[in-house]
Amino acid sequence: MSEPVSALGGASFHGFATIREIGPLGMITLRAKGVKALDKAVKAVTDTKLPAPRRIEINGEKACGWMSPDEYLLIVPYAEVSATLASLAKSLAGEHHLAVDVSDARAIFRVEGDKAADVLRKLSPVDFEMLQPGELRRTRAAQVAAAMWAQDAGFTVVCFRSVAGYVMGLLTHSAQPGSEL
């Protein structure tokens, strides 16, 4: 079998901030609400607590983000997706839930540098000065849906795979040298 390939094969751009396409990462959409075993089930796969609304709990390569009142985004290494799904199926057996692999449906970008936020300020109607550490913001980047959070002196931006080229174009346009805000 071939190696999994991210949408843009790891494209990058160096402007006043650095843009890097990363991944593929393992990503799982987990939908459940009011399920007792949920805390434990998530803890078992990402070793994080269940995030509060609009938060993301990050633990090394793994993370769990709050997407909506009944939806979480689990991030694990790509190779661990099957095992993670199996673990969830076991710990949530008998509970109404949905866990599905969306690793390949996404593109992930890192926007790095002192002025990384300036790149995103040009694309999203988000008050980045008020964005809390560990806050996961779902919004739009220009004309497409995106999720973003601050992480390791920069931001992680997630979008749909089919528009990866468009989002790379947006980030490149916004990070042009000399266009700092």
């Binding site: 909506s68 009142p69 779902r138 739009r140």
Partner: peptide, 12 residues
Amino acid sequence: PYCGVKAEETEL
């Protein structure tokens, strides 16, 4: 009312 975001019209 679900996530508390003060969303502008273009996000809705």
